[in-house]
C-alpha cells in the first residue's frame, strides 16, 4: 500500500508536467502559428473588433437579425433555453416570436418563416442563419435601407457559405459578415 501511495504521488507530479504544462504549451505554440494566433477569429470594422464566430444581437430593421438567444448574445456565458418540445409556455413563446416576426416582415407569408428564426440556439451565440432565414428578411432590410431587393438578394447570395467541400453539412450565412457588407454598400 505504502509503495503504491508513493508511486502514485510521484507519477502524478511527473505526469502533471507532461500533460498539464508541456502539452498545453505545445498547443499554444502551434496556435501562435495559426492565422488567428489562438485569439479566436476576429474581424475589424471602423476600428472596432468583432469575433467572427460569436453572434451578435441585431434588432434594427436595417440589419439582418440573428436567431433568438437564451443569453441575449452576451458571450460572458453561454446556454440554450433547455425548453422541452411539449412545454406549453415555450410553445406560446414561439408563437409570440412568429407574430413579432410577421409584424416586422409584413411581406413574408407565415409559411416562409424558417424555424431557426423563432427558436433559440444551443449556445445562445449562434453566429449563423440559414439561407431561408436571410431570404425571409431581405424585403424588410431593403426597405429600411432604401436598397433594391435584388441588390440585397445578391449580397445574401454572395455571403451564403456552401457545405464543407461542397459535400458535408448545411448551408449557412454569417450574420455579422452579411451586416458589415450591408453597411459598406449603404455608404457608397
Amino acid at each position: 500500500m505504502k509503495t503504491n501511495v508513493l508511486a502514485a504521488i510521484k507519477m502524478t507530479v511527473v505526469l502533471l508536467v507532461l500533460l498539464a504544462v508541456a502539452y498545453p504549451a505545445l498547443v499554444w505554440a502551434i496556435a501562435k502559428m495559426s492565422p488567428s494566433g489562438g485569439m479566436g477569429d476576429t474581424l475589424e470594422r471602423k476600428g472596432k473588433k468583432y469575433y467572427k464566430n460569436i453572434g451578435q444581437s441585431f434588432t434594427e430593421d436595417g440589419y439582418f437579425w440573428s436567431r433568438p438567444s437564451a443569453v441575449d448574445y452576451n458571450a460572458a456565458g453561454s446556454a440554450g433555453s433547455n425548453k422541452g418540445p411539449s412545454n406549453e409556455d415555450y410553445l406560446a413563446e414561439v408563437k409570440t416570436r412568429i407574430d413579432t416576426f410577421l409584424i416586422h416582415n409584413p411581406d413574408v407569408p407565415e409559411a416562409h418563416i424558417p424555424v431557426e428564426m423563432v427558436t433559440a440556439s444551443g449556445s445562445g451565440l449562434d453566429p449563423d442563419i440559414s439561407p431561408q432565414g436571410a431570404a425571409a428578411q431581405v424585403s424588410r432590410v431593403a426597405k429600411a435601407r432604401g436598397l433594391d431587393v435584388e441588390h440585397v438578394q445578391a449580397l445574401v447570395k454572395k455571403h451564403t457559405q456552401k457545405p464543407l467541400w461542397g459535400l458535408f453539412g448545411p448551408e449557412k450565412i454569417n450574420v455579422l459578415e452579411l451586416n458589415i457588407a450591408l453597411d459598406k454598400e449603404s455608404k457608397n
Binding site: 425548453k83 431557426e116 427558436t119 433559440a120 440556439s121 449563423d128 448545411p170 449557412k172
Partner: peptide, 12 residues
C-alpha cells in the same frame, strides 16, 4: 424544414 432547431446550431 430545418428540423428541431431549438437548442441546435445552424452550422451543425
Amino acid at each position: 424544414s430545418l428540423g428541431a432547431m431549438e437548442g441546435k446550431e445552424i452550422r451543425i
